[in-house]
Design a protein around this nucleic acid. Structure first.
Lengths: 204, 204
DNA sequence: TTGTCCATGTAAACAGTTACATGATTGA
DNA sequence: TCAATCATGTAACTGTTTACATGGACAA
């Protein structure tokens, strides 16, 4: 249900094509929503039909047009209305945790599990840091465009809220890294104990 | 795709009805997966057809039978195989963050947003603490059943992995609480500054 | 007898992923 | 001219939610 607002939000910083959106949302890097182009193009159509965005042709090559979309006043109003509502939280679904608690018959797979977790969130943390850093240095094109071309009264808040959001996500990733590290420390001890127990049983 | 494993995992601690599963998964409380009964009953049928669980009648009232499901050897093998794989992480989708970064034109809604966030994760933290606590005290029926009736070699690990999982989720909730609190502190200052700025402009 | 919980299903709609499909532009 | 990237769509499938539907058990 948030895809439409992710699109409206993106376009609220300036016009863009479906392809632009797909690049932003496909990877999900530096962004808070993900979607494939196969979901984006139909949604752009719906938003256009609803009058929340407008579609116009733009030159892509010599005899080839692309379509740019711009947000309308109605779209801006709907985005603001949505942003001002209290957040709602989706039901928790965490397959990593499920796998973890049902590994109690195969502790041998725990190291793989925890190391993959560690690596995943290290990378996420690093990419989030890079993105935040580029925003703070003014080299993030889209955010800088929003700051430069939006109403001056908004500029400070634009950056501050991104900092809040990204530093929060960075802290989340750091927490996962620390969690996995302490779990791996425990696992070292656990496996050491098991080795000693087996050695004690069969000395020599 | 994890629903089948959530079900297999639940049944790996002992037999249960579709209704039992629905109660566990409907609220998602103290659990890592959520589903409605409308999704559970068809999935139980599929799993039965695949030979991963078995269905048998059990007495519910005088002239009324309910259906109990038990995991089969094939089901246990599939559960173990899945649990041993490296975790994979779904693409990030976070409507709360989207709402936050697009509130830069309506700072007036930020307090509502942050207070709702704070309250949501305070409650989640408290419920997770209660669940963990009941497991550690041996009063969590389902987990205690798994510990008591499973192979003794598994018992320590069953509890330890639940502790890892739940304490990790508790730490996540605590992080969100701390994040929201520091954001609210910033907001207090921000609004104070604005009041002073307005007062400075129109003194008296 | 009335309301709450126990108990089990199906149907329609919506959201998201994967696969299919096509063609232009640009730089090496 | 070849590969990578730009650019735009549709179709089929899977997963999830909401709504529809039914009926027994049990306690106030």
């Amino acid at each position: 249900m948030s895809l439409r607002y992710a699109i409206l939000g993106y376009l609220s910083s300036g016009p863009g094509t479906g392809y632009d959106l797909a690049r932003q949302l496909d990877t999900g890097l530096g962004w808070f929503w993900t979607a494939r182009h196969s979901q984006i193009y139909p949604e752009l159509k719906k938003l256009t039909e609803g009058g929340l965005i407008r579609r116009h042709s733009a030159v892509a090559g010599e005899n080839f047009d692309k379509f740019e979309y711009s947000i309308t006043e109605a779209g801006l109003a709907e985005l603001r209305e949505w942003a001002g509502q209290a957040p709602s939280y989706p039901p928790n679904r965490d397959s990593e945790r499920l796998q973890l608690i049902f590994s109690d018959e195969q502790p041998s797979s725990l190291r793989l599990h925890l190391e993959a977790h560690l690596e995943h969130f290290r990378q996420r943390r690093d990419r989030l840091r890079e993105t935040l850093s580029s925003m703070q240095q003014g080299t993030h094109p889209r955010v800088q465009k929003r700051i430069d071309e939006g109403p001056p009264s908004r500029a400070d808040l634009t950056l501050k809220l991104r900092e809040l959001a990204y530093s929060g996500d960075i802290a989340r990733a750091e927490l996962e890294v620390a969690w996995a590290q302490s779990a791996l420390d425990w696992l070292d001890e656990y496996e050491q104990d098991n080795v000693e127990r087996l050695a004690g049983r069969q000395p020599g």
